[in-house]
Structure formats: C-alpha cells, structure tokens
Write a protein that binds this DNA or RNA. Structure first.
Lengths: 337, 337
DNA sequence: CTCCTGGACTTAAAGGTTTTCGGAAACGTA
DNA sequence: TACGTTTCCGAAAACCTTTAAGTCCAGGAG
C-alpha cells in the first residue's frame, strides 16, 4: 500500500531521455544505444516501473485477456476444463477473466457485456453438461470457443469429450476380459451424455453380435440410484457378469449393493464406471475401472484453439476429444484380484 | 465476429451532438435535455455501443476488477472460496481475474506482476491449506485479503475457518449424545488444520473433565488411512464409543473398517467427520455427521472486506469464521437410527 | 435597455503508452 | 567543403473516455 505508481514519464525523466526512447528501451527495440538502454532499465528497476496494461491495450486493441464464461463452476466438470485453459494461457502472458453465470441466461448476457466492455481478446464458454447449448457468438466482435458443452450452431468452434467412443471402448474392454452378459445403468435420459454412452454401448455390443442384458436403467447420477438399480437389475437379470455404469457414483452404489447381495466384484460381476472421479474410483474397493474424459486436456485444447481463432485461424465444428480408459481392479479376470 | 466496434465518437456524430454531451447522456448526468438524451441513447443502441472499459479505467484509475490468486484451485478448498468471492463481486459490477500459481512461488510472483500491470483494484489470495503463508502485500499499491490460508503478517487481512472452535463443537455434540470414550484420527501433523482440530478436541474434553481415548493418530488425509487407523484403534482401544475424524475421507474409511470388524455405526461407535464433502458425507451409510467450514461464505466475506479495504476501510488481523456442524445419522443415539 | 442567471451544449485537457516520422549529430566519401 | 548515410533520439499523434471550463442564448429582473 504505497506511493503513486511510476509511469514511463518518470522513468524517462530519471534516465534523462524522452518517453519515446524509454519505451523503445523497455520493449527491446532497435535504435537505442546500449548505454542508454542500460540507463533506462536501471531507472525502471529503481522505480519498480510496471507498464500500464490499460494504456497499452487501449492503443493496441489487444488486452491479452480472455473471458471464461461458465454455467456451473461448482460442478466437477467445469473446474478441470477451467484449469486446463488457465494452464494454456498462463504459459504465455494471457490472463483469464472468470465469470460464472450460474445457469442463468440473464446473468450470462450481463457477464458477456461486462467481458466485452473490458475488451477481452476471446471467449471460452464452458457448459455444465455435454448437451448442446444456445450459441452466444452471433455478431460478437471476438472469437468464441465452446468447451464440454457444445454450441448448437455447427459453425461455432466446440470441443466435447467423445462419449460414444469412450463407452464403446469401455464395453470392448469388458468383452476382452471375457464378459458376455453385460448390463447398463446410467443417468437421466435428458442428458446427452446418457444417450451418447448408451449409443456407444449398443454399437460395441452390436459389433460383437451380443445382446444387451436387461433394459438400460436410467436415473439420477447418484450413488443411491446405483444401489437401487443394482437391486432391480440383480433381480431381473441374475446371470449378468458385467455392468457398464454411466458414472462412478452409480458404479460405487452398484458395487456396494452387489456385494451385500453376495456377488463378488470383479469375480462374479465386472464393473466399469465413468468420470474417474478419484475420491470414488480409487478409494472404493475394488478400485474402479473407469473412463477419464481428459477434461484438463480438453480445456487446454480449447484454449489453444482460441488462440488460433484470435489469430484468424478458426476451426469450426464440434470436435470430439478422445477419452481414456483407466483400468483398475473392478474388471480384473476372475481369480486375479 | 464483425465490424469495428463503435466508439462514443460514432454515437455522438450519429446523434448529432458532441462527444461530451453523448458521454453525459449515456452516464445519466445533468445538463442534457431529455430529447437530446433520447437521441443519444437511440444512437448508442443502434450501434450497440459498449463503452471501452480500458479508456475509462485509464482515466479514473479504477478498473473494477480484482485479482484472485490461488495456490491450488484443483483442491476442494479453493473452489468454494473462489465461488463465494465471485458471487460477492458479480453482484456488483466487479470482474475477477483468476490466476493459479500451482504452489510455485516463482509463478506466483509472475502472476502478481501481471495482475498489477493490469491495474486490479485489489487482490484475494486463496491458500491451499490453513497453514500461514508468506505475505505478498509488502509495498503493494493495492489492498490484499487472504482467504483460507492466512498471511504470516498479522497486519494483513486474513479470513480462516475456526478449526479449533469447530472441533470443540463436534466433540461437544458427541458428549451431548452421551458418548464418553472418544478417540481422534486426523491428518498429518505438519498441517495447521490437524493441530487446530486436535486442540479443539482437547479443550472440549478437558472442559468436560474427560480423557482422550488413545493417542491421536496422524496420517494422510485419505480413506485408506482411515481404514488403517481404524484397525489400530479398535485393537488398542476396543472400548471406544466415538471417534472424531479430521476429514470425511478418514471418517469414511473408519466406518467401513469398523463395520467389517463388527462394530455398528452409530449404535456402538459414533463418528464425526470434517469438511462436509458431500459425495462422501451424504452418500456413505450411515450419512456422516460432519463439520462444514462454510467456505463459500468465507470467500464472500473476504470479497466484501476487500471492497472495504479498497474504500480505505481495512480490517487487519486473522479473522476466524465460524463453522457449522451438520448432524446426520452417524452420531444418532443407539436405537434411533 | 442592460445585466444577470441558468440551461444546454462544446472545447480541450488528461490519463499512459506505442509508433511514426523527422531531426540532429557523427562519420565517411567525393 | 558539400553531400550522403548511419545511428540515435525526440516531438507528436493516436487509442477512448470523462470532466472542468468555457460559450452561447433565452428569458427574467432591474
């Protein structure tokens, strides 16, 4: 808390040069004698001069700042994306202006205006689910990239996890482990994530020429639902040898109930979760095989493509980012665990 | 993505007035005839004019932007604080510039410079633990408030959860439930949180004239450690009727092992956790009685005090924010659950 | 009629930086 | 000496907005 900030004028007069020369010296440009540059740099250090980014941005029209507009930071999904983006930016000299719209369209508009008036160079919009959301980019003077939740407008740039592919990968892993009687428990059908994961499951089963055991069970994304669905499923389809769950919470609930009903995991029933939410997937017993959506990478990628878009090299379309299967004990072959 | 942005000059010339009049009309100031103001407003809407915050900030010296410097956003603790702060700011017209130092002092300095050069009006520093951290505020031209992790310098403004009081509250709850033989499992001793919570436990027990059962067991903040500690504790002190755990993860591990060893929770042993990490505290069975640190409120309070400090009304010192005991099934009296 | 008041509007400066352009000095060449 | 070239530096414009100060005019008071 202190004295007035030094300006380039102060630096120049202390060094005994004009502000133009001081500017050139500080920015490492030509046309400045080495000795003079030295003097300016010393003066700047002496005054602990920090160039005023506002003045600089006003002139150049570039703020080296991007806006991050999220609908739901509190969710588990927005955070890693945010971190990845912050990471990609932080590596350069970018700063991130964070706004949380709390799922409210009015507030979103409000934040959008605030960001635009601050002259951000670009915008990342982070969705709260993978369901497509209304575009925000119409007539905006800056490029926008959507992460996790894609824009409804296919001419926008969006990055989403490849849920379909990941689900197929999970099921193929179960098949490779010798399982043949596979059931599916997942989240609410109005989530695109639920529908995509089910689609992946079906295509993998179809390719293997196998039927799905039982109906797909849809319910909340909770552990409680996992327990409840487990009871129904074990009753209706007692001969299943594997379950693909739409989330780690559901999987954890399933495992708990299955064990209480006398089924061993993974010996009798193999279980695959989704999300790789570590507090669940690594701490439950057995540790869960699960899909990691690589959200941090997704955020980083979105940020990098925003850079590209700022430089005029936009890449329109919905880009599906590959997920990764993390194999743990819940799908080990019988007798191995 | 589009045409050049409109400036107040464009608005003024479209409305047929000078830029000064346009400015006054847009800012709702006096000395403008109603009809003129109408014309200006119409012109601004027509051009979808957004005042340039850079120019405004350059002139006024106020950016209406604050920096949020966190050491570990990925942790569970930084996020709620961040949300609370963002909430308090978002209510007004403030924006938040987010930087994550990833626990690296060099990177922190780097971000600090970046924030300062962007002329933020103030700074919130969010710690990754409640252990005091080096002050960053020396000779800074803007006010700083520390949240969660306090500054080592007592003349700074810091807000931390009242771990001592909360632990005492938790133990008093166990006493009120009729428990008398209480043990303690917690995190690593180099965490101030561990030491504070143990202190709270001791003072509550001392006040009740009761001994602590067994040594305090210190280990990682993990479910695995909770299981391990449970085995040791049940062996060494088989007659305990309650355990106060330093985190929900530890509590969840303890409950699991205790049940495997034939102890019923809460009938034989009551358990209190810490953090109210919902995925654990509400989804485990029985649901955990636990301490909620009200981190979002803490963040909001920190933000409000930063406002005050920006207005010259700083409130130095380490402020301990009250926590809240969330009572669930794991401490019900025997026979009630 | 003059003088004053106050309303409505304009002019100009300020804020901090970058950049373009021109000038001056130093030096080499004819 | 005259001239061209290179090197280093300074003056001034530009970015966009707000605001203090100034201008102009109509209308009321004396």
């Amino acid at each position: 808390m202190s004295r007035k900030r030094a300006t380039i004028t102060d630096v120049a007069s202390l060094a005994g040069v004009s502000i133009a020369t001081a500017s050139k010296a500080l920015n490492g440009r030509q046309d400045v004698r080495a000795a003079t540059r030295e003097r300016v740099l010393a003066a700047a250090a002496e005054l602990s001069f920090q160039p005023n980014a506002l003045a600089r941005g006003l002139l150049s029209g570039q703020t080296r700042t991007v806006g991050l507009l999220t609908s739901d930071s509190v969710g588990r999904f927005g955070i890693p994306v945010l971190l990845g983006a912050e990471d990609a930016f932080g590596a350069g000299e970018m700063a991130v202006l964070l706004c949380d719209a709390r799922g409210d369209a009015i507030r979103e508009q409000h934040h959008l205006r605030a960001l635009l008036s601050r002259r951000v160079d670009g915008l990342i919009v982070v969705g709260e689910s993978t369901s497509p959301r209304p575009s925000v980019s119409k007539d905006l003077p800056v490029p926008v990239v959507y992460a996790y939740g894609p824009s409804e407008d296919p001419s926008d740039v969006s990055f989403v996890p490849d849920d379909v592919g990941a689900a197929a990968m999970a099921v193929n892993h179960l098949l490779a482990m010798g399982r043949r009687r596979i059931a599916h428990i997942t989240g609410p059908t109005h989530y695109k994530a639920s529908r995509d994961r089910e689609e992946g499951l079906r295509s993998a089963l179809a390719e293997a020429g196998l039927p799905q055991y039982g109906q797909t069970l849809s319910g909340p994304w909770s552990q409680r639902w996992g327990r409840h669905a487990a009871e129904m499923l074990l009753m209706a389809e007692p001969e299943i040898d594997a379950v693909f769950c739409g989330s780690d919470q559901i999987a954890a609930g399933f495992v708990e109930t299955a064990r209480e009903r006398g089924r061993r995991v993974p010996d009798d029933i193999a279980v695959v979760g989704y999300d790789n939410w570590e507090v669940l997937s690594t701490e439950t017993r057995p540790a869960l095989t699960t899909v990691d959506m690589n959200l941090e990478l997704l955020g980083r990628t979105a940020a990098q493509h925003l850079f590209a878009a700022i430089d005029g090299k936009a890449t329109p379309g919905v880009h599906r980012m590959p997920c990764q299967l993390v194999i743990r004990d819940s799908t080990s072959p019988p007798g191995v665990s």
